[in-house]
Design a protein around this nucleic acid. Structure first.
Lengths: 165, 165
DNA sequence: TACTTCTTTAATGATTTTGTGAACGCACGA
DNA sequence: TCGTGCGTTCACAAAATCATTAAAGAAGTA
């Protein structure tokens, strides 16, 4: 098999793998495809190049790319006498990836925390009963669970461990 | 507001919250709903009770409940002179939840690891070129990233931290 | 200012996922 | 061993998600 075709096969398969895992994370497959494609590309790519190379519409790329940028995983840049927007993976992509995932997790945990607090408040407002007490107990256990998870994420030891050399 | 209706409102909202987070984890909403519903229920519930209380079909409950059992989050039990199957949350639900999530993550990482290795192999087989070298470099960085993440998950310090008292 | 080129937004169509109803089959009790 | 009650499976319907096309918007250039 020729050299260039090996490369393109490999690139394609990894791109697809990226798509799948991004989908697993609830970010949509295109997001992952773009990220991997750029990660395996030397230098920058314009929006329509990416669309062409991945066989997707420019609209789809536009949306996904901005999502990636907001997660800090992509950088966009412009050049003189050229109206195109160019993208490349962030230089500190490892950190960004870590941060991004953390943020995602933290958001979801925050939502859960709200629910738990609100539930607790409402139960405390209402009149007491054996069942209220039971549910309050369960909620408190759940809160402890969540706090532990949070603590792990924020823990300096973990942060140290997750730093890529 | 009366006591019992406060309770049922709270239970319903928390159940829905559980559904959402389970969906985020790619487990399907029903899985989360059942788990929370049982977590907030004293004692056991039969399959059709759960179906009734959540307003879902027995088929759906059957499938989701077995999934939860295989994750170690639910226990099923039977009683004499009663053909129904009963479910309750596992006693060590915190540990089980932690283990289950870890397993989930580990599986996904395993898939990614395969892709990376295979890609690496194929590139090494093929003829050398500047581009091959570039992509190989990228793949190696990715592998390092993955290894670091893995190491964190397996790390005894993290395990200690994630233990719920 | 008007034209060109590129990105973004919004609405529609397609695909995938999810849940249900009905039929099936197993096991327990009589 | 037969009948009944329960859990499970499968095919289909409904719903959610995803991606595209078309049209609007923005920014540079003459």
């Amino acid at each position: 098999m020729s050299n260039t075709s090996t490369i393109s096969v490999v690139r394609k398969r990894l791109t697809e793998a990226g798509g799948r895992t991004a989908q697993d994370l609830g970010l949509g497959r295109i997001v992952g495809q773009i990220l991997v494609h750029l990660y395996l590309s030397r230098g920058e790519r314009s929006l329509d190049e990416i669309a062409m190379e991945l066989g997707l519409s420019k609209a789809a790329i536009s949306i996904a790319a901005r999502q990636l940028e907001s997660l800090g995983l992509l950088r966009r840049s412009w050049h003189k006498n050229d109206r195109k927007t160019y993208y490349r993976t962030a230089d500190d992509i490892a950190t960004a990836l870590h941060q991004g995932l953390l943020m995602l997790v933290r958001n979801k945990m925050g939502l859960m925390a709200n629910e738990l607090h609100q539930a607790e408040d409402e139960l405390i407002q209402g009149s007491e009963s054996e069942e209220t007490a039971f549910i309050l107990g369960r909620i408190q256990r759940a809160k402890k669970l969540r706090d532990t998870a949070m603590a792990v994420l924020e823990n300096p030891v973990v942060k140290l461990l997750t730093r890529v050399k």
